[in-house]
Design a protein around this nucleic acid. Structure first.
Lengths: 367, 367
DNA sequence: GCAACTGTTGAATCATCGT
DNA sequence: GACGATGATTCAACAGTTG
């Protein structure tokens, strides 16, 4: 028989679970100062009028879901203040929050965050490499969304894995603008009819960078607008604990099934660059972030030696760890080594140089 | 002797001049609905605590001017609401505004703009190609600033030179993220001591794109936080009128001297890529009237379906008759159809779009 | 097998003129 | 102001098929 929790004890934290219900009410049932990081993708409050057609007359499948409807700015502000207040209560003193939005809502959200006592650290722009164009030629292509990163309070000693992010970014410090593609193709979850399961599914590459940069393994990450569970899937893969809150049963089911398939990376893949590591000169980390190579995957050299990919784009080899170049040089007992041509990965029985993936990304980035 | 202005008359608009004083008070003296575009670079309300040093121990020359000091968010909001209210009153019904800021102030400004009745059109990110790094390694490089573009009201028919911007962007439509360098080198104005004349001088390239995209030659552009007059300099160069408001005499003097040196481009240089929407309308019946197409002649669609031309310039198709657009839409079961590009006629075995005949007539009209 | 081509799609506050 | 007619307008990525 379970021991009854005394009223004075904090309620237990339901780790790695998807909680059902309205996020404000559910958060009220969670204990103070228990969460390391919150990632929130709240409704954007889009105010679409009629239908929109492409030049070829096909209809744009817009976000017209009931959960995105608010009667006024005042109603949206009230909702925002309420969930932000609970979110802030749940954060540990050194906890932090990320909130994503578009120009429809992000200014109201950002002002409410400042009013609630959050301390803004950066706004980060997600630049979409493949945004939907503006079909009528009346405005600029809406090619980005904005994320606000804030600590619980002005004095918080928030987590920021500066060197891991620097390693992900060619050895120069990570900027406030991130170029990443939309969630499309096989990553985009489909329902039974083959339609998109959720209208606003975020790419895993975005959450990868957020979680690598502002959490450590074992941290507790809360997503109060869980949707199809991108936050949970990436958190599980990276060895973080997650708590999801989602109102719609259909989304919860899709998310649970998705997360069940995710395997947590083993400890060696989760090690990230220490602060004294030398700078890699090549953005090998982008291949990992983008899912072209998996953390934990093994690379092979021309002589058959191997090394394992870690989540921040460094390699762990036999008694040596570091950039693709450093591990290659160590294996060859050479002063230097071009890791791009030295290392290969396996696909469908073939051995392919990792440089082919770099070229693939470069082609996309040039656009 | 100057004729005295009656109280009922609108005060005259002081074009191409720098007005001295507090921007809210000066704006109160300007007439309603007289301005085409406002560009505003208000104080950012930076909240710097101590001094910041680079890794080499040199001191960063931060913005610590008295005009950037506000006692609280409430004080900043009050200031923001007041200048925005005046700005909106001054705009013509189809006028628009750009406001630039950073994460310290832009969320409060954006929310105040929505509350004041401005209709947000886009947020545009200025990505700095050469930002100042984060010296402490505690945050992301602050590599961008945010601009909000908004019309006076929801229904405003704001200016947007889509084709000119598309031409500026190598033929694809302009996105909401702009990569431009900081204002440095010879463009950066210096004072008598050789120090920068203003701490936040904006690059002319930024204003160039703003003014090309959202004004036409002869428009009146107001900048209520004129500083060293980048808005005025670019407006003059591009053949737009400007009104600047600046409180600090030192900045006014630098700006006046700077603008006096600017030469307006001649008319041919000011022409930009034109829009098809601006072309004169040609009724399809004119082609029949002019004998370019004969009544009874058969037009062909891309899918091979046909319709017969009638003497009044309408088409008779299978079980439907009407304009070239209506019959095309009916054939395609589409909500609309551009008949000019949809229908083709035959000459000498070739299939030619009827739009080529319209262009022929337009060319004749221009002679 | 590979290149070329076709079709689909993504958080969107997406028109203007004459009567 | 309401209403109907005109007619301008898309980029990148991916999947699937054709040659």
């Amino acid at each position: 028989m379970a021991i009854k929790t005394k009223a004075t004890e904090a309620p237990a934290l339901p780790l790695n679970d998807i909680l059902s219900g309205d996020c404000i009410e559910v958060m009220r049932g969670l204990p103070d100062a228990s969460i390391d990081l919150i990632f929130a993708d709240p409704p954007y409050n889009l105010q679409l009028k009629g239908e929109l057609h492409r030049p070829d007359n096909s209809k744009v499948d817009a976000v017209d879901d009931h959960w995105d409807q608010f009667s006024s700015f005042a109603a949206y502000d009230k909702f925002t203040r309420e969930w932000l207040a609970e979110a802030r209560r749940l954060l540990k003193p050194n906890g932090a929050i990320w909130v994503i939005g578009s120009y429809h809502n992000i200014f109201r959200v950002g002002a409410s965050m400042q009013d609630a006592g959050f301390w803004l650290l950066n706004d980060v722009v997600w630049r979409k490499s493949n945004p939907m164009p503006n079909f009528r030629g009346k405005r600029f292509t809406n090619a980005h969304e904005t994320m606000i990163w804030a600590s619980k309070s002005e004095g918080s000693r928030y987590t920021f894995n500066y060197d891991a992010l620097k390693a992900l970014n060619e050895g120069t410090q990570m900027r406030s603008d991130w170029l990443l593609p939309l969630c499309t193709g096989h990553e985009r979850l489909k329902d039974a009819n083959g339609d998109k399961a959720h209208p606003t599914q975020k790419p895993e590459s975005l959450l990868h960078r957020v979680l690598i940069g502002s959490t450590n393994p074992g941290d507790v990450v809360l997503d109060p607008f869980f949707g199809t569970g991108t936050t949970g899937a990436v958190a599980k893969m990276l060895g973080r604990n997650f708590i999801g809150i989602e109102r719609e049963e259909a989304y919860r089911k899709v998310a649970a099934k998705r997360i069940a398939r995710v395997r947590t990376l083993d400890a060696s893949a989760l090690e990230t660059a220490g602060s004294k590591r030398a700078e890699p000169r090549i953005p090998f980390g982008h291949l990992v972030e983008r899912g072209l190579l998996r953390p934990g995957e093994v690379l092979v050299s021309p002589r058959g030696t191997t090394a394992k990919i870690r989540a921040d784009g460094t390699l762990a080899g036999d008694s040596v760890a570091g950039s693709i170049h450093q591990v290659g040089a160590a294996y060859e007992k050479a002063p230097s080594c071009n890791g791009w041509t030295y290392w290969h990965f396996r696909r469908d029985g073939k051995t392919i140089p990792i440089d082919s993936l770099r070229q693939q990304i470069r082609a996309e980035m040039n656009n």
